[in-house]
Structures are given as C-alpha cells and as structure tokens.
Design a protein around this nucleic acid. Structure first.
Length: 157
DNA sequence: GCCAACGTTGGC
DNA sequence: GCCAACGTTGGC
C-alpha cells in the first residue's frame, strides 16, 4: 500500500530550500522509536511526504519530498562527534535507521500551521492534536489531497 | 525565552 | 512494573 507522510524539520536547521539545493538527502538523526518503526516498517520508495518546518515563522508545510531509499543504517549513531551519537548502539545491531529523501517541490508559500488548524476537514490529523510531537507521521490520503489544494490556492494571485 | 506535553531512564 | 526525575520537542 502506498502511503503519504509528513516529516518535520526545524526550518533553521534544514529547510525545504536546503533540500532543493541538495536534491537528495539522508534523513538522519531520527531518535524516536515510533518514528523509526514507521520509517522501517511502513515507508516505501516512491511515496510522497510533506516537508514540515517546525520552530519556524511561521511553522507549517513548506513543500514536498519523495522517499527514494529505505532501510539505511543511520551512520550518525556511531559518530562520537555527532549530536545524534548513541553509545548504546552497536554496528552488529544498529538501533537507528534512516531513509533517503529527494526534493519534489517547494510550495510558493508555506501552508501555516494556523491555516491547517482552521480546516475542519483536517481536524483529525495527528499533527494537529494537542501534544503531538512525532517527527515522522502518516498522512491520510484525503488530508494529503486537501493540503495540496491549500498549497495551490496559496500560490494563485 | 517560557513552559506544557511527551518520551526515556533508572531506582526501587 | 511503577513512577519520579529528567531531557526534549515545539508552539507561542
């Protein structure tokens, strides 16, 4: 089954513009088991993901990315100099995986979190639930289509 | 910068 | 297995 996703990144750390520049990027540094399990067990190459800027002005959905590879070992878990270093992980049984992302589209304007919250049709999105922090989330296809429409509206004069 | 909400750790 | 303490996330 093909699913849709939402991936969070702090806009000041790695933004959709960075992804546009790089073309592709390893999605390293995920250190949450639920997020890891979703990437490991449910993500497939070719699936699309919204690229969400957190801690930004405004926070919101900034564009689209595509999953191009899955099941990669995140090398930063073994790198003592990395913020993502995990001394409890071993090369024999690596704990953290990552996927490879490709740039697809930068929306003309970020679809702000506030705008998403104002849409009744999106009320059940995990992203919009109080206390939701998961950095890798599945997106319902109907929600996905609705948000794409918002992004296109925002781009018309 | 604040702080509420959450996940993880570790003592017991 | 419980739960308090701690660290992190992320909106505001």
């Amino acid at each position: 089954m093909s699913r849709c996703w939402l991936l969070k990144s702090e806009g000041e750390v790695y933004s959709i513009d960075d992804l546009a520049r790089d073309g592709q990027t390893p999605w390293e540094g995920v250190r949450n088991y639920e997020a890891r399990n979703l990437m490991r067990d449910a993500m497939r190459p070719g699936e699309l993901a919204f690229f969400y800027h957190s801690n930004s002005k405004p926070s919101g959905i900034a564009g689209l990315a595509k999953i191009v590879r899955v099941g990669l070992t995140d090398p930063t878990q073994f790198d003592k100099k990395s913020d993502f270093y995990d001394p409890t992980s071993t090369r024999a049984a690596p704990r953290w995986q990552m996927v490879e992302l490709a740039f697809v589209e930068r929306f003309a304007a970020v679809v702000p979190l506030e705008r998403l919250k104002a849409e009744k049709a999106l009320a059940k999105m995990p992203l919009l639930q109080k206390g939701s922090r998961l950095s890798v989330q599945p997106v319902d296809p109907a929600h996905f289509a609705h948000i794409l429409k918002l992004a296109r509206l925002g781009s018309s004069p």
